[in-house]
C-alpha cells in the first residue's frame, strides 16, 4: 500500500463505508421506516461513487463560461488529449485557446445520477406509501411484530 494509492483511493473507501452503513441499516433494522432510511443512504452513497468518478483534478463543472460558449461551434477542441493540442493552437480565437485550458469534469456521471436520484425518490415514495398501508392494516411497522401476527393467524 503506497501513499499515492491511499490518497488516490481514500475517497472511494469512505464512499464504500457510507454505502455499507446504509446497507447495514437495510438488512439489520426491522423497523420499516428505518429500512427505507437505510435504502436512502445506500443510494445517496452510490450517487457519490459515480460523481467521484467524474471528477478530474483541477477540473471544473461542465458548464461552459458565457464567453466561450457559442464560439466553439464545429470545433473539435480537446481538453485533455495532448495529441489534439495542435488543432487548438491553430485557432485564431483567443477564446478557443482559453477553452482548451479549462478542464471540465466528466458530465456523464452527473447525468446518470440525476436519473438515479429521481429513481431513488420514486422508490422511497412507493415504499412509504406501502408502509402507510401496512401500518393501517396491521397497526405497526415493526416487521418482527407483523410476522408474529401473521404466524398466529
Amino acid at each position: 500500500m503506497t501513499l499515492t494509492e491511499f490518497f488516490g483511493l481514500y475517497n472511494y473507501w469512505i464512499v464504500v463505508f457510507l454505502m455499507m452503513t446504509g446497507f447495514y441499516i437495510v438488512i439489520a433494522r426491522r423497523n420499516m421506516i428505518k429500512t427505507v432510511i437505510g435504502l436512502n443512504i445506500f443510494q445517496v452513497s452510490v450517487v457519490l461513487l459515480y460523481v467521484t468518478m467524474g471528477k478530474v483534478t483541477g477540473g471544473t463543472a461542465p458548464i461552459i463560461p458565457p464567453g466561450i460558449a457559442g464560439h466553439s461551434d464545429g470545433e473539435h477542441a480537446s481538453s485533455h488529449g495532448s495529441h489534439d493540442a495542435h488543432e487548438v493552437v491553430d485557432h485564431a480565437h483567443q477564446h478557443a485557446a482559453d477553452a482548451a485550458e479549462i478542464i471540465y469534469s466528466n458530465p456523464l456521471p452527473s447525468v446518470l445520477m440525476l436519473t438515479a436520484i429521481v429513481v431513488g425518490i420514486a422508490t422511497t415514495a412507493l415504499a412509504l406509501a406501502l408502509i402507510v398501508r401496512i401500518s393501517e392494516d396491521y397497526g405497526t411497522i415493526e416487521e418482527d411484530e407483523i410476522l408474529l401476527m401473521d404466524r398466529r393467524q
Binding site: 494509492e5 481514500y10 478530474v56 483534478t57 477540473g59 466528466n106
Partner: peptide, 10 residues
C-alpha cells in the same frame, strides 16, 4: 485514482 485525468472515464 481519484481525479486521474487519464482514466478511461475521461
Amino acid at each position: 485514482h481519484f481525479g486521474d485525468r487519464h482514466s478511461p472515464v475521461q
